[in-house]
Design a protein around this nucleic acid. Structure first.
Lengths: 226, 226
DNA sequence: GTATGATTCAAACAAACGTTTGAACTGCAA
DNA sequence: TTGCAGTTCAAACGTTTGTTTGAATCATAC
């Protein structure tokens, strides 16, 4: 049987994907060299180009491996909700939970690499790299369409522009929730702060729903004169 | 008089800072080479090392130039509020406005480079680069201490852990607000969406305050058994 | 004018980058 | 055994990276 390869547990391809995923989180795409990846994966330098073709193709493969699963899961949850509702509009809290809860549950999974990947994804939302942006936009197209549409019908009295902005704000909250408190709270005795992933989702959900349901702002007229 | 230099309007040092700021937003730190910077600034390749010492030192200079101003402004606003209140606890909305409103007003300033810089800053929150993180943590230490402290006394009944998380979530919302809707809303006819910077602050404020004032979540017990 | 300190310049540096190459090695079929 | 894909390997490819150098140029003061 071939399940126990002589040198290392898994396939070279998978070891490269895992190593790249971790290193991208830590050092970014440009800050991670092929030599760092292949030596962390116990593979030869040429292995990346052999299995993936190029570094850019490897980056795409790292994302596709997990992002497809995540977004299919999100759509499946939304499908289920809509079937259960039987044509009636969904509760906004259910929609929000389907989108962001699915992501946060994946981020809480430390065993199958979900945590590492979600950190990478959160960090990549604000990545300037052109072809990564393009790739993410394509991967997200259907999901965004479905979820925004669901929110539009769930909140018919709220202007769609407002819903889109609030969805955008919620995405920012999610990204920071996944990244953790590590960044700027050094002196505030961050070690004493509860960061149990089990409790992160309820915390994030109550914040998001409070923001989503907040009274609409008084907007200044379209063309202010200063 | 020396205000009109022969070759270019401003000082070489400032031209380099401006060029670096813009290029860092677009391509990231590692994706921006010294040659890109110096040619965009109409300066010699050696100019960066002459004026700043190294590329890393240039990155720090780019941040320090504006971040010091931003955080001093934030502290000044908070000082003013506390003097006006005369010892009474501040309204949370005022504290939030002082911190995030100041940032968003700077981000709306397109003439003095505030917009470019705030985009860079928003993008850098989730930057893995080690020495940039360290630098940001030091620059933010006092501001975080003051503002979190103000919120702690303004909301004595809310657990401090909850306040810190919600402040973190708000920071994420701010970062995405500054970055704009450009990323993932391609198909949702993003061109038809109102993104007037004048109206972004009220939008963000109502979302944030809704989230900050939301009912506290039901948290699962500290040590769940699964 | 001439000396002085600050700045700019073209050119080169070693190191690291992503990628390619051709030979060596592997496991399995004939 | 021989043959043949699939995979791994050490070595080198040409570029690009950040940095350094020493001479040239500038502005200012004596």
């Amino acid at each position: 049987m071939s399940s126990l390869s002589p040198t290392t547990p898994q396939d070279t391809r998978d070891r490269i994907l895992d190593a790249a995923e971790s290193l991208f989180v830590e050092h970014g795409f440009d800050g991670t060299s092929m030599r760092m990846i292949t030596s962390a994966a116990n593979a030869n330098l040429a292995a990346v180009n052999y299995h993936f073709g190029s570094k850019d193709a490897l980056v795409q493969a790292v994302f596709r491996r997990r992002l497809t699963v995540l977004n299919e899961e999100r759509l499946a949850v939304l499908d289920r909700l809509e079937v259960e509702a039987g044509g009636a509009p969904l509760k906004p809290s259910r929609i929000v939970e389907a989108f962001f809860g699915t992501a946060l549950r994946m981020a809480a999974d430390t065993e199958h690499g979900g945590r590492t990947f979600m950190r990478l994804l959160a960090r990549t939302y604000s990545e300037p790299n052109a072809f990564v942006r393009q790739f993410l936009a394509e991967e997200y197209a259907e999901v965004m369409d479905r979820f925004l549409g669901a929110l539009f019908t769930a909140l018919p009295d709220v202007p769609r522009t407002e819903i889109m902005w609030r969805f955008h704000f919620m995405t920012g909250s999610l990204a920071f929730a996944i990244s953790g408190l590590g960044g700027l709270y050094e002196l505030a005795d961050v070690s004493a702060v509860d960061d149990d992933p089990q409790r992160l989702l309820p915390r994030l959900m109550s914040f998001m729903l409070g923001g989503l349901r907040a009274a609409l702002p008084d907007l200044p007229p379209p063309c202010a004169n200063d």
